[in-house]
Simulated assay, not measured.
Amino acid sequence: MTENSSRRVLERLRAIDWADDFAASDHANSRALLMREYLRRAALWARACGAEQSWPFLDVAEHVDAEFQTPPDVAAEVEEVLAGLAPTSLKRTCRAAIRWAALRDVRDDLPADLPDPYEPLLLMYERGGGYFLEEYLDLNGVMIRLGNVESNASATSFVTLAPATLDALDAEGQITYYAKVSEGYPRHKPRGIVRRRIDEGQTYDEAFTRRLRWEPTEYLNLYDLGHNEVDHVKITEIEAAAFIESVTAKILGSPSATP
């Protein structure tokens, strides 16, 4: 980050439509993945700082440098942005993200082996607003169990945060992903991926193509009929995201950065 990073985070927060229920619904899948990644990163930082009791919505800067404060002008403006928002933990994370950005501007000795704690959460907010916290995390479209520090710290990382990749994961219905595998094309580097969506009783089979979009495919139906020699295995959303991002990077010629 460079100078004034805290103000850039502030402007990102200012641009969010916190009441956009349609965006929250449209981006339900990617928002769930982003929240889970935030919980994982927060668990790593909580454990590194000895702040397990403050997880999941902790102020990392407070535990790294308790004396450091957000610049007064930015701190005052963020309170205007947060006025009327709930729950309290959401406000805490927004303040913490700004304070963390400000701290990174002036400190070059912060742990380099831990990922940015707040970027997944900021992206989640930008894709449909906040959440409600009761027995589960309610993202206005999907429910997430919190778990604990250890279960989240050991979770699979979701490092593909590019907007195009996140968009490609958002779709209606129950989705199952498959990787097309064969000799020389293992699960982690498949020939391609397909998905089956079941939405309101209708089944849709789609392949992610070189046009960087999902398009209808008969692959799964043909395979069931014995007409395909290429095999496939079921994969996770995170594995599908990694494939989408790698293909996008190859075709567009530049990999996307991962905070």
Rank of each mutant, 00 (worst) to 15 (best):
Met1Gly: 12
Ser6Asp: 15
Arg7Phe: 04
Arg8Tyr: 10
Arg8Asn: 15
Arg8Phe: 15
Val9Gly: 06
Glu11Asn: 10
Glu11Cys: 02
Arg14Ile: 11
Arg14Glu: 14
Arg14Cys: 12
Ile16Cys: 06
Asp20Trp: 04
Asp21His: 13
Phe22Asp: 09
Ala23Trp: 01
Ala23Leu: 02
His27Asn: 15
Ala28Arg: 01
Ala32Met: 03
Leu33Ile: 06
Leu34Val: 09
Leu34Phe: 11
Met35Lys: 10
Leu39Tyr: 13
Arg40Asp: 01
Leu44Tyr: 09
Ala46Tyr: 08
Arg47Phe: 06
Cys49Arg: 04
Gly50Arg: 09
Gln53Glu: 12
Gln53Asn: 05
Pro56Arg: 11
Phe57Asn: 08
Asp59Ala: 03
Val60Phe: 04
Val60Ala: 02
Val64Pro: 06
Asp65Tyr: 04
Phe68Asp: 00
Phe68Leu: 07
Pro71His: 12
Ala75Asn: 04
Glu77Trp: 08
Val78Ile: 14
Glu79Tyr: 12
Glu79Phe: 13
Glu80Ile: 03
Val81Met: 08
Leu82Asn: 07
Leu82Ile: 08
Gly84Ala: 10
Gly84Leu: 14
Ala86Cys: 08
Ala96Arg: 12
Ala97Phe: 00
Trp100Gly: 03
Ala101Pro: 09
Arg107Thr: 10
Arg107Tyr: 12
Pro111Glu: 10
Ala112Tyr: 06
Asp113Val: 14
Asp113Ser: 14
Leu114Glu: 10
Leu114Gly: 08
Pro117Cys: 13
Tyr118Gln: 13
Met124Cys: 11
Met124Ile: 11
Glu126Asn: 08
Arg127Ile: 03
Gly130Thr: 07
Leu133Ala: 10
Glu135Cys: 07
Asp138Tyr: 15
Asn140His: 08
Val142Arg: 05
Gly147Lys: 00
Asn148Glu: 13
Asn148Thr: 13
Val149Met: 08
Glu150Leu: 07
Ser151Phe: 09
Ala153Asn: 00
Ser154Tyr: 12
Ser154Thr: 15
Ala155Val: 06
Phe158Asn: 02
Thr160Asp: 04
Ala168Asp: 01
Ala168Met: 06
Ile175Ala: 02
Ile175Thr: 09
Val181Cys: 04
Glu183Tyr: 14
Tyr185Trp: 04
Arg187Lys: 10
Pro190Cys: 06
Arg191Asn: 10
Arg191Ile: 11
Arg191Gln: 14
Val194Pro: 13
Val194Ser: 14
Val194Cys: 14
Arg195Glu: 02
Arg196Cys: 02
Arg196Lys: 11
Arg196Thr: 02
Ile198Ala: 10
Gly201Asn: 13
Gln202Lys: 15
Phe208Gly: 03
Arg210Asn: 15
Leu212Met: 09
Leu212Ala: 02
Arg213Glu: 00
Arg213Trp: 00
Pro216Asn: 06
Tyr219Arg: 00
Gly226Asp: 07
Asn228Thr: 02
Asn228Arg: 14
Val230Phe: 13
Val230Ile: 15
Val230Gln: 14
Asp231Glu: 00
Lys234Gln: 14
Ile235Asn: 01
Thr236Val: 09
Glu239Cys: 06
Ala241Thr: 02
Ala242Pro: 05
Ala242Arg: 02
Phe243Gln: 13
Ala249Trp: 01
Ile251Met: 10
Leu252Ala: 07
Ala257His: 11
